[in-house]
Design a protein around this nucleic acid. Structure first.
Length: 280
DNA sequence: ACTAGCACCTGATCGC
DNA sequence: TGCGATCAGGTGCTAG
């Protein structure tokens, strides 16, 4: 569920509340909460102090006062909450960290999220090695990113969702970015000019910047920040979840198609079907 | 080497 | 009221 703006909102909350704190005790309440490729058991970092919280795309990691890092991914429904010790356990509480007066809790209804302890290689955790930089990364290189898009032989929306091409974009911001750039989601990447790919990356960057400014997109309580608060970007969505509503630009009814096992929302007038896939 | 499809989960909602 | 089908913000594995 959470995409870059939501994960970055969580990262900022963690940075505010957890940096400098010691992980005094760690209690794992669900076997699926720890990554199967976790090199070391989560509890081995008991006693470590948190130095910083980093992020690439949708992956978060806690820098510790030791070489390993604590990596976290929220999957579709993961959340971190800062809670008083006295708070009742949440229904889907998976991991509890004692950080002194409060607890850091990892909660995850669908159990697609996970935490793991990993080594770093060139500053990146093992499981993040294959994830491309996101547009907010100081190492983000536009020309290299465009080149990776052009190497893909697929539809542009699949490429946008491919975290090894450019990270951070998920289903909501993919649809919103394509709408802003007036590109049909099924457009073949091979047919796209460099300038169009650059425009699309710019749209993705601006839509995620705007979403971040209002704390991300919350449809329900599956995405909330570390203080339990929702984001407000769902009020600004042009197409995602807007099937049958009028396009904010031209008024035409927004359509939803199923594509790559997920929904794609687009305006049939602003984002016409590309020539290559017309007679299907 | 690459892409497409599916598996991995729980829960809400909708039509019958 | 209940039951099955469908849908949900992600990623990794693997068949082809």
């Amino acid at each position: 569920m959470p995409e870059l703006p939501e994960v970055e909102t969580v990262r900022r909350g963690l940075a505010e509340h957890i940096v400098g704190k010691k992980l005094r005790d760690i209690q794992v309440l669900h076997h699926r909460a720890t990554s199967p490729n976790s090199i070391t058991a989560l509890t081995s970092i008991k006693g470590a102090r948190v130095i910083n919280i980093n992020r690439r795309g949708k992956f978060l990691w806690f820098e510790l006062n030791r070489p390993e890092v604590l990596v976290g991914h929220l999957g579709m429904s993961g959340q971190f909450l800062i809670q008083p010790k006295s708070a009742a356990d949440e229904r889907h509480l998976r991991v509890r960290f004692n950080i002194g007066r409060q607890e850091l809790r990892f909660i995850d209804q669908r159990t697609f999220g996970w935490l793991s302890v990993e080594q770093k290689i060139d500053g990146l955790p093992t499981c993040v090695q294959h994830i491309a930089p996101d547009p907010f990364d100081p190492n983000f290189n536009l020309a290299e990113t465009v080149a990776r898009f052009r190497k893909k032989k697929t539809e542009i929306k699949r490429a946008l969702l491919d975290q090894s091409v450019m990270s951070g974009v998920g289903n909501i911001y993919a649809d919103e970015s394509l709408w802003r750039s007036k590109i049909h989601p099924e457009t073949r990447t091979e047919t796209m000019k460099v300038s169009r790919i650059e425009e699309l990356i710019q749209s993705a960057t601006s839509v995620m910047t705007e979403a971040l400014e209002v704390g991300g997109t919350s449809f329900d309580d599956l995405y909330i920040n570390v203080n339990g608060e929702s984001g407000y970007f769902e009020r600004s969505l042009a197409v995602y979840g807007q099937e049958g509503e009028g396009c904010p630009r031209c008024g035409r009814q927004i359509r939803r198609i199923t594509f790559a096992n997920r929904s794609s929302h687009f305006c049939p007038k602003c984002q016409p079907t590309p020539r290559a896939s017309r007679n299907r």
